[in-house]
């Protein structure tokens, strides 16, 4: 089979398909009709504060926020949930890691207004009452931190890693935890805490 030629042929064939099959739009409308119908459809809000409801650790919080407020700043400056840390505010350190619908994300690059409708879990929502999450306890046991500043992000990332069912050999855990920088250098202890927790729940 000739690699380039076939592809080019298929590309032409593909582009000749009706648009609806390609982009999955409402098949009842033609492209033109959709364009016309849509001109005034998006409704813009802001830049002044708008109502934003965040579901954090199982509780809804009704806020008035400018659209530019990040989830991280909403948590820290508006909701007093300062366990989620600001280490870089640029998506380069992982200190702000929270779970959005169970998946780990950087709160610093998430607009609060876009986090609506998602279930946000922060470090404050991990323990049940006095009962620490097993990974929290394992971090203490294995000394998986020193200054503690990256720790909430590490733990949230580790909790996600465990739920993602990634391999938990040492090399894999190191790689899958590399989105969380620890300047104190507790990495091997963090890996040990995660692997011990994985072993326990397996």
């Amino acid at each position: 089979m000739e690699f380039g030629k076939v592809t080019r042929r298929r590309f032409l064939w593909r582009s000749a398909l009706p648009t609806i099959a390609v982009v999955g739009l409402d098949p009842r409308l033609s492209v033109a009709a959709q364009a016309v119908a849509s001109i005034s459809v998006v409704r813009a809000q802001g830049p002044e504060p708008i109502p934003v409801t965040l579901n954090v650790n199982g509780k809804p919080h009704a806020l008035q926020l400018e659209p530019r407020v990040t989830l991280l700043d909403a948590l820290r400056e508006r909701l007093g949930l300062t366990g989620t840390k600001k280490g870089c505010d640029q998506g380069t350190c992982g200190a702000c890691t929270v779970l959005a619908d169970g998946r780990r994300v950087n709160a610093c690059l998430t607009l609060a207004v876009m986090a609506q409708g998602k279930s946000i879990t922060t470090i404050e929502g991990l323990a049940s009452g006095d009962q620490l999450h097993p990974l929290q306890a394992a971090f203490i046991e294995h000394d998986g931190f020193q200054c503690g500043y990256c720790t909430p992000g590490q733990i949230m990332s580790g909790v996600a890693l465990l739920s993602e069912k990634r391999p938990t050999d040492e090399t894999s855990v190191r790689e899958w935890m590399s989105g969380n920088i620890c300047r104190c250098g507790a990495y091997p202890n963090i890996v040990a805490a995660i692997r011990a927790t994985a072993g326990r729940s397996a």
């Binding site: 949930l81 366990g83 620490l132 203490i140 931190f145 503690g148 909430p152």
Partner: peptide, 19 residues
């Protein structure tokens, strides 16, 4: 001995200057 401030740090309850 485990860190005596460990619980504060793993629960997000340890507060730093900006907080």
């Amino acid at each position: 001995v485990d860190r005596v401030d460990g619980r504060l740090k793993v629960t997000g309850a340890a507060t730093y200057s900006a907080e």
